[in-house]
Amino acid sequence: MNLKAPYIRIVVIGALICLLPLFLSSFYMHIAVLVLIWAFLACAWNIIGGYAGQHSLGNGLYMGIGAYAVAFLLDRFNMTPWLGLVVAIALSAGAAAFIGWIVFRYALKGAYFALVTIALTEAAVYVVSNIPALGGAGGMQMEYHGNSLYYMQFAGQNGYFFMGVLLVVFILLLTQWYRRKRFFYQLIAVRENEDAAEALGVDTVKAKIKANVMSGVLCAVGGVFYAQYFLYVGPRSVFGEVVSVQILIYAIVGGLGTTWGPVVGAVLLVPLSEITRAQLGNSYPGSQLLLYGGVMVLTMLFMPFGIMGLAERLHQRWQHRSTTQVVDSQGGEAS
């Protein structure tokens, strides 16, 4: 198969998605923007969680850092979110490098990384809630400027929608491009067998820290987008356990370590949960998260590789039967 095909597929699907505003009402456009935000975040998490196989449960921390950085800088210094974005990237990179270094330098991994990351993202909720300059428990409202490129704001949803499509297309192209890079092969080696990777010259500590930084920075970018869309940040809406779990559930349901899995997961689950919330949220608060919990349990029990993982396995079995030789190492999604 053509090496360029996966890129073309991403761009074409992205372009087709851009037609959606012609058909959708405002309520569904809102859901579409949410799908894009969470798909982007899930793709970002997929780098550390899916490809590098490290159990980061705290990516809400980086999303929160991104969201709070732009909100605070806009609120305090009237700083354009474009500059805020740069600050967000720098801060999240520092945090992700620090956390990665703390955990990975002594080869502490697995559940330990999961515990430390979930503890830190939860801790961030309590810390931020206690800092008046960041709005405390109530969070921060951001000033609305109408259609303004300088303030990265749009009147109505379409602007955000196109921005979201751009971001998701960008991250998909990035992952697709990285798949054929030494760094990604090394990440997968780390995931598959760390001792063997080390013995073959892979600096596993450095690879994991780099993956954590990449994933963290991209989550911060997602956080910036989130803040710009809602023009509000609150401790529990961008930090914390629930947000972190939301980030990774789409990737897991869609298929860990696959290019499209996080997007597929978000496309299926975000509308489902938003409609659940709209229908039942008032009479049954928590129905949305109950749904997430149920989906997680059922996925792990009955479809542990996620949708793309399942599709991939079915595809492989089918190929096995119909052809004797598999020539293409590019076409498959999972590695």
Partner: peptide, 28 residues
């Protein structure tokens, strides 16, 4: 117990799922 031999990530997700269910059932 059905997923004791599965990857750690799956076990983590499963218990997180159980925690979401319990918490929100209690809320309801």
């Amino acid at each position: 117990s059905p997923i004791l031999k599965d990857p750690v990530m799956n076990q983590i997700m499963l218990t997180l799922g159980v925690s979401l269910i319990l918490q929100n059932l209690a809320l309801m």
